Computed example of a mutant assay.
Amino acid sequence: MSDLLFTVDNGIARITLNRPDKLNAFSTEMIELWIDALQMIRDDEEIRVVVLAGNGRAFCSGGDVKSMTSGEGMLYNNTGVGDMVTTALARKNTLWKKVQRIPLLLQEIDKPVIAVIQGVALGAGFDMTLACDIRIAAKSTKISESYVKAGIVPGDGGAYFLPRFIGVDKALELLWTGDVLSAEEAKLLGLVTHVVADDQIDEFVENYIQRLVDGPQDVLRFTKRAVYQGLNMDLRTSLDMISSAMGIVTELPDYQEGVRAILEKRKPNFE
């Protein structure tokens, strides 16, 4: 079986991490397939929503600790054959060219990206969900920025995303301690969007993503761009950008349908 499953059906792209016996810890194959899937999603205009999930009893436990120590793993692969500088550079390059491409690609996708979290989401496994737009967690989920427990730094986005979600002090506390959070605790901090009973999460997710699939796609994409780009803009620049988007979307069929639906007091039927 492949370490990552990827399907597209009725405008919904589904990426499923598929190493359940390893709690979906990263492998070279998984990362390479993940990168390929994200590139396809980014460039395919027919895809409307992306769902990221894990197979089995975990979302993702991050790096494969056994492979880190054996020299077989891609995350911290000891491939250098000379002095320590060469080894450190090889590890850096492997991170940069492989696993770190995932959050970068996720940020390039202008469609809604939904992370479905269950079991455990640890270290880089959890950081990948922070690069998504919405995080829906099963109530029994446990979350940890566990890098410190392995004696490593947060190399996969935690140092970037966490302070933007919860502030510098809380981010450092989680990264320094590796404390384990329940799904409800993560939601209170703003790290999880929804917490759902374990036996109801599949139904909740399907209903949630269908609302997005049925929405006005260009509006959703322009809005996502406006929100993320606005984080790095002053107000004047953000307003200038969104006024351009408004000019474009009001010439599209979805705008006409939306206005008619409001006037006719019915649910809109967007293309």
Results as ranks from 00 to 15, higher is better:
residue 139 K to T: 10
residue 23 L to Y: 01
residue 30 M to K: 04
residue 25 A to K: 00
residue 167 G to F: 05
residue 8 V to L: 05
residue 258 G to L: 08
residue 178 G to L: 14
residue 197 A to S: 15
residue 252 L to E: 09
residue 127 D to Q: 12
residue 218 D to M: 10
residue 40 M to I: 12
residue 181 L to Y: 10
residue 5 L to Q: 07
residue 28 T to D: 06
residue 89 L to Y: 09
residue 248 I to Y: 05
residue 69 T to Y: 05
residue 110 D to K: 10
residue 133 D to M: 03
residue 143 I to E: 01
residue 169 D to R: 14
residue 11 G to Y: 13
residue 245 A to H: 15
residue 150 A to R: 12
residue 205 V to R: 05
residue 172 L to E: 12
residue 160 Y to N: 04
residue 175 L to W: 06
residue 223 T to Y: 08
residue 197 A to M: 11
residue 44 D to M: 04
residue 171 A to L: 09
residue 21 D to G: 00
residue 153 V to M: 11
residue 38 L to K: 05
residue 8 V to Y: 04
residue 127 D to G: 03
residue 251 E to R: 09
residue 234 D to W: 02
residue 213 V to H: 06
residue 190 G to P: 11
residue 182 S to A: 15
residue 42 R to K: 14
residue 229 Q to D: 15
residue 236 R to P: 00
residue 71 G to Y: 01
residue 261 A to W: 02
residue 207 N to S: 13
residue 173 E to K: 13
residue 51 V to A: 01
residue 38 L to Y: 02
residue 133 D to N: 08
residue 191 L to T: 05
residue 28 T to V: 10
residue 73 G to T: 02
residue 57 R to T: 06
residue 29 E to F: 01
residue 235 L to S: 10
residue 215 G to T: 03
residue 100 Q to C: 15
residue 249 V to W: 02
residue 101 R to M: 15
residue 191 L to K: 06
residue 205 V to C: 11
residue 144 S to V: 07
residue 217 Q to T: 09
residue 186 A to V: 08
residue 31 I to C: 04
residue 16 T to N: 00
residue 161 F to W: 07
residue 266 R to K: 15
residue 271 E to K: 11
residue 249 V to I: 15
residue 207 N to V: 08
residue 36 D to L: 08
residue 60 C to V: 03
residue 56 G to M: 02
residue 214 D to N: 12
residue 17 L to G: 09
residue 263 L to T: 10
residue 42 R to W: 03
residue 160 Y to P: 03
residue 47 I to H: 04
residue 36 D to M: 05
residue 68 M to Y: 04
residue 203 E to P: 01
residue 266 R to H: 07
residue 43 D to N: 12
residue 139 K to W: 01
residue 67 S to P: 00
residue 134 I to V: 15
residue 179 D to I: 15
residue 161 F to Q: 03
residue 157 G to C: 09
residue 43 D to E: 13
residue 169 D to W: 11
residue 32 E to H: 02
residue 199 D to W: 00
residue 156 D to E: 10
residue 168 V to F: 14
residue 39 Q to F: 02
residue 216 P to Q: 10
residue 24 N to P: 07
residue 26 F to C: 05
residue 89 L to E: 13
residue 35 I to A: 08
residue 125 G to D: 03
residue 82 G to N: 08
residue 61 S to H: 01
residue 92 K to T: 08
residue 205 V to W: 03
residue 91 R to F: 00
residue 95 L to F: 04
residue 170 K to M: 11
residue 252 L to T: 08
residue 127 D to F: 01
residue 53 A to W: 00
residue 118 Q to M: 07
residue 104 L to D: 11
residue 19 R to E: 11
residue 162 L to Q: 10
residue 185 E to P: 03
residue 97 K to P: 00
residue 174 L to I: 13
residue 270 F to G: 15
residue 100 Q to D: 07
residue 85 V to N: 08
residue 97 K to T: 05
residue 263 L to Y: 09
residue 199 D to I: 06
residue 85 V to L: 12
residue 31 I to L: 14
residue 138 A to E: 10
